[in-house]
Write a protein that binds this DNA or RNA. Structure first.
Length: 676
DNA sequence: CATTATGACGCT
DNA sequence: TAGCGTCATA
């Protein structure tokens, strides 16, 4: 049993784990032109989310508060992440206020894309570990390299009496810095065997990839090379920053044996804790003493195998190669000071989140044409209030012309979701108050491709005939424009200084796409020339509009603002640029309220009445004035300020009706339970 | 250990 | 499938 679960093939792979060094910091350093040697950190509200290595020397760590950090190092440069601000362009604002601003991580996402794009030039077999991490299956690259070196006669062989085979000889010192860091002291400089040879060239290939990332984008990273994701991941953190590590098959037992169990990937959480408690183990080698059969007595089969293999440094699965994001989400949590107390505030913020996601979705269309089918809203509400309430609702997000034209439809969908969440709770007969709202999360998932060349009724309805006739190669070229057209150097520059179209997210996103009335007819092709297409609206027009407008519009914003941020931190004194009054905590002066007041709320986007009566009912609730909950702490004047009383009365009736139904259901449930 | 903003995936 | 939970990283 135990023998067949692990095979030679498990060791035949070569996997790199590449991890950027304090990623957010690096991005900010490059953006601001600050040297790596200057202590710098990236802050989000009061806390540090990234600390560079110069700052770590002062003992500054992630999660520390900015103030604490500055005590340790007065010269520390603290950069706050970019934010969306009411009525302003998204960017590096002076004094971002958690009550009114929203974090914007675009800059890092774009840098991340560039990094993955560099990796993709080596192989498509990589997996995104996170925004700054990649698992790369370099087996093929390594084998190719080995073949090449053999054919060049660069690899020496010796005859091994034990196995009756010719084995390759590895001279580790010949590989230079790339092959320098091996874990374990046992390894000699002279080594034999295919597994070691693969590791050797694995290290060389990995170093090439890292070099490419650095030379093309200026980012340093660390890496681990081994035959599994588990081991490579462990290796990449061994020699940070800007170095790599090799874990040879022969060194694996020693290497992970002494490790605490929770160091292993996926065992750092509850599972790891459970294992430790159930089996009374601490280290990985403790775990290795337990047979698979024993583990299966404690855990589900799959989990048991997973644990068994993990403790031996083996991946249960192959590295999937997927590059496209599978979901987009936008979150806003309101800390302790700015929890939301009115429906209007919730709707305003939901509009912000929607617009954020919409913009990112649109940006993504430039790279991959795919669109989510589902929109999920999650509200987190106070724990002191009734039972902790974290509930979510889904919504079908139809791909259609309108939803691409402006964020309005998305906003509207999301705001309907708010209403559903608040009023259509299914399993509670009396509706607990959702207020105050601590956190809002909007999530899009279930992407499907809408490749123009593929038949899809909705798409073909929308895209004009002439657009459909675009020749295929042109389309494919245009797909690549985002990451491939420009030389790497100009690329990073454009990314940081000009690619910033998300102006006035709060204020004018509504007009930016639609008010540009002139029909845009160009798509950018690979060679940076433009090709004329049908004058009708097509998929790409929107982006061309953006690309054109951003160049002169944005340059001043992203390139100059950051330095103000810097000065804000007390480094250089520059006059405090006229700041929007940090708006009062609870009132969002955000313009998305435009959306809310436009009363597009009373039109139904989708024809839902046929197949989803619950939703269509809820649409009526949108302008509800009165919170039906008894324990609601919503000031009634807040409600009264923007409601229609007539509708409210009607809605109250519906509310009661709905409650009845819920009660009926719960009675049925009770009966059923009684029967059982 | 926390916080906040993300993302992937698994279970039922 | 909807909805929730787990694990991860900056």
């Amino acid at each position: 049993m135990s023998k067949q679960i692990i095979t030679e093939a498990d060791y035949a792979k070569v996997i790199s784990h590449i991890d950027l060094d304090c990623f957010y910091c690096q991005v900010e350093q490059r953006r601001l032109g600050i040297s790596d040697t200057v202590p710098l950190c990236v802050a989000q509200w009061g806390n540090l989310v990234a600390v560079n290595y110069a700052a770590r020397k002062y003992g500054i760590m992630r999660n520390e508060s900015v103030n604490e950090a500055k005590l340790k190092c007065p010269d520390l440069i603290s950069v706050h992440v970019a934010t969306f601000a009411p009525g302003k362009k998204a960017g590096y604002h002076l004094k971002p206020n958690q009550a009114t601003h929203k974090v914007c991580l675009d800059v890092y996402r774009r840098a991340s894309r560039q990094i993955f794009s560099v990796i993709q030039n080596f192989t498509t077999e990589y997996q995104k570990g996170s925004i700054d991490e990649a698992y790369i299956n370099i087996t093929q690259l390594v084998n190719d390299e080995i073949d090449k070196q053999i054919s060049l006669g660069n690899i020496e062989f010796v005859y091994d009496n034990q196995s009756n085979e010719k084995l390759p000889v590895i001279n580790w010192s010949q590989g230079g810095i790339a092959t320098k860091y091996r874990v374990g002291s046992s390894s000699d400089d002279r080594d034999f065997g295919w597994s070691s040879l693969r590791s050797y060239y694995g290290a060389i290939v990995t170093a090439r990839i890292r070099d490419a990332i650095f030379s093309q984008l200026g980012f340093t990273c660390s890496a681990g090379v081994s035959h599994s994701r588990i081991l490579s991941k462990l290796g990449s953190s061994l020699n940070k920053p800007n170095k790599q590590a090799i874990i040879l098959q022969t060194d694996v037992p020693d290497f992970i044996g002494s490790m605490k169990l929770e160091k292993l990937r996926f065992l750092g959480g509850k599972l790891g804790k459970n294992i430790k408690e159930l089996l009374g183990v601490e280290t990985v080698s403790d775990m290795q003493r337990h047979s698979l059969e024993k583990l299966e007595g404690f855990f589900p089969l799959k989990t048991a195998r997973f644990i068994y293999k993990s403790c031996r440094g083996i991946d249960p699965d192959v590295v999937p190669s997927s590059t496209k994001p599978k979901s987009f989400s936008s979150v806003k949590s309101f800390g302790n000071i700015s929890k939301l107390t009115t429906l209007q505030q919730v709707q305003d913020w939901v509009a912000v989140l929607s617009t954020d996601i919409w913009e990112r979705l649109m940006e993504q269309q430039d790279i991959d044409r795919y669109w989510p089918k589902k929109l999920t809203l999650t509200m987190v509400s106070s724990k002191i209030n009734v039972e902790a309430r974290n509930c979510s609702k889904n919504f079908p997000l139809h791909f259609c012309k309108n939803v691409m034209e402006s964020p309005e439809l998305l906003i509207k969908s999301a705001s309907e979701l708010v209403i559903q969440l608040i009023y259509n709770t299914k399993n509670k007969k009396s509706l607990p108050s959702i207020f105050p709202v601590e956190c809002l999360l909007l999530h899009t998932t279930q992407f499907y491709s809408y490749d123009i060349n593929h038949k899809n009724k909705q798409i073909t309805n929308w895209v004009s005939q002439s657009t459909l006739k675009i020749n295929k190669s042109e389309l494919q070229n245009s797909e690549l424009t985002y990451d491939r057209t420009e030389s790497a150097e100009s690329h990073i520059v454009s990314s940081f200084s000009t690619k910033h179209y998300r102006d006035n997210l709060y204020g004018s996103s509504k007009k930016s796409p639609t008010s540009k009335k002139k029909p845009l007819v160009t798509i950018t092709t690979k060679k940076n020339s433009t090709t004329l297409l049908s004058p009708k609206k097509n998929l790409f027009s929107y982006f061309d509009a953006l690309k054109k407008s951003e160049t002169h519009d944005q340059a001043e914003n992203l390139s100059s603002e950051p330095f103000k941020t810097q000065s804000d931190q007390g480094k250089i004194s520059i006059k405090p640029h006229t700041q929007e009054n940090p708006t009062t905590p609870n009132i969002i002066k955000a313009d998305p309220s435009i959306y809310m007041n436009q009363s597009f709320a009373d039109q139904s986007i989708y024809n839902l009445s046929e197949n989803n009566s619950a939703i269509s009912d809820s649409i009526d609730f949108i302008q509800c004035t009165q919170c039906p909950e008894k324990n609601s702490n919503i000031p009634s004047k807040d409600w009264a300020s923007h409601v229609d009383y007539h509708l409210a009365l009607k809605l109250q009736e519906k509310e009661k009706h709905a409650e009845k139904i819920v009660n009926q259901f719960s009675n049925i449930f009770k009966k059923q339970n009684a029967d059982i």
